[in-house]
């Protein structure tokens, strides 16, 4: 998983706005952010850096197989 978990979210919505690839959304009821589209995470950490309560933990592993030119 790319974004591992979100804990202690206060529902400010900044991460949802910030994510360049639209990975996160706010739950309609709890207003808390959740990882809706993990496959699109580019592991750039912008959401984590912008989060006011540092609620987001990110792992370096992509949730879908990675295509490279050569390896």
């Amino acid at each position: 998983m790319s974004i591992e978990h979100i804990k202690g979210c206060i529902g400010c919505g900044i991460c949802v706005q910030t994510c360049p690839t639209d990975v996160l959304r706010q739950d309609v009821k709890t207003k808390k952010a959740f990882i809706k589209y993990p496959a699109d995470c580019q592991i750039c950490h912008l959401c984590r850096m912008y989060c006011p309560v540092d609620a987001i933990t990110i792992s370096p592993e992509k949730s879908i197989p990675v295509v490279v030119s050569w390896g």
Binding site: M49, E61, K62, V68
Partner: peptide, 20 residues
């Protein structure tokens, strides 16, 4: 640009904290 073999998709990690 090449990436690094380990966790090639992790740009934050691959760029060694430059984003910060």
């Amino acid at each position: 640009h090449p990436g690094r073999a380990k966790n090639a998709a992790a740009c934050f990690d691959g760029w060694h904290g430059m984003f910060e």
